[in-house]
Design a protein around this nucleic acid. Structure first.
Lengths: 226, 226
DNA sequence: GTATTTGAACTGACTGGTCAGTGCAAAAAT
DNA sequence: ATTTTTGCACTGACCAGTCAGTTCAAATAC
């Protein structure tokens, strides 16, 4: 055995930067770190293969953790997945809200808010492509254990977009004939699919580039030369 | 042995009523009918639960067929799924092409073609919601057996939209600054997500209604009162 | 027309492997 | 001293795929 080198290298590596964030507030930091590792391992595996095709052994292995640890931290495979969903969508909605509020503080209109949210969406997908992939894949399924969780969490995110649209209508900035719910869904779809396409098929393009293309579409500058 | 009573009763019972339907044309009609039943059973089950969570036994049971029959007709579970994908996307692309050509014959412009394709997409999703669901769920996965099939099949569908956009740019009907590939993806996403939302959360609405909302978005009649 | 043959289509019990989840004693971290 | 993690053997359910045997309708023979 080479000194300083262990077979299953057990280095206390700092992966994220969790330690300073809300130090002490419920659970120990070590536990939080393991959970984070498990999330990261699970999200990519499940995005690639789907929930059922991904085994707990794989998740544990990729996280560099024993199988027992998975069950020490989560009641079951589905619970791990559900908490992962909640965690991820939490990040997204926070980011969307911040984007909308940012433009409001800067005195921008609702179109600016929508545009900022499109960018926030792109940034999110750029940072967490696997999560996005997985989310899309599960969203419209029925008969699954985490169905209700997914519902709640979806609503949180879409509600932010709907809110901005509604405010825009109230302020007279958008036509009052628009269908808020459907338009919100369509906008989300636009960003989602374009971004996944970007990441999958032309990853070399810059975020600004993609953002510009979507902005143009949003502002109806497609038909008719500018 | 009791006369008139055999252990495995061999009565010439009429089960289906296949005999008159298109007698002979390529493969046997019976076989084709079973395959169709299997497609239908598989598409809903896989849409609901995902590929891995759906068992061959379930598919067979829902199709009203023995498990062996599945393997008589398809080499494996994945092959059944791949052929199902090809079959479904074939229907979609045909429908999109027809929509675009229809407006061309009627002397409409490319905006009309896009609008007609949006409608065709909605009609398709209205008729085959399960297939759409399943398609979306699998499209951005990686590391799966049918990955390449999915790629080919996706390109066929998106190419139709891209084609119309390109023609529109060439004809000066669309700004030549649009990004064809990204815009096509965004449009597909818009329709896809809005339609799935419609089917999942407000199924009572009419197709015309949904189509109107998307048309408005396409033509940039969202920002600014009309 | 009736009997027999043929081959494609179908059946369902069975097999071999996989995997979620358990149990627990020892080790490590805090 | 307590919490957390490890390592690993084990179980029981579940499931893809197989295969020897069965059904049936059309073709051929009588």
């Amino acid at each position: 055995m080479i000194p300083g080198k262990r077979s299953h290298a057990r280095l206390p590596v700092r992966i994220g930067a969790m330690e300073s964030s809300s130090a002490r507030s419920g659970g120990s930091t070590r536990r939080e770190a393991t959970r984070q590792k498990l999330y990261e391992a699970a999200v990519t595996l499940i995005a690639e293969q789907g929930f059922s095709a991904t085994t707990v052994d794989e998740i544990a292995e990729r996280a560099g953790v024993a199988k027992g640890t998975v069950y020490y931290n989560f009641a079951s495979k589905s619970v791990l997945f559900e908490e992962l969903l909640r965690h991820g969508v939490g990040l997204l909605t926070a980011s969307l809200k911040e984007a909308a509020e940012g433009t409001a503080r800067a005195g921008g209109g609702k179109v600016d808010a929508l545009d900022a949210m499109i960018r926030a969406g792109l940034v999110f997908i750029d940072r967490y492509p696997a999560f996005t992939q997985l989310y899309v894949a599960e969203l419209w399924r029925t008969n699954r254990a985490w169905q209700s969780t997914l519902m709640v969490v979806r609503q949180e995110a879409v509600a932010v977009v709907e809110g901005v649209l509604r405010e825009g209508v109230a302020a007279g900035e958008f036509s009052d004939e628009i269908d808020v719910q459907l338009t919100a869904a369509a906008l989300v779809g636009m960003v989602l699919v374009a971004a996944l396409d970007w990441k999958s098929f032309q990853p070399e393009r810059s975020l600004d580039d993609v953002h510009a293309a979507l902005s143009r579409l949003l502002q109806g500058r497609v038909s008719g030369r500018v």
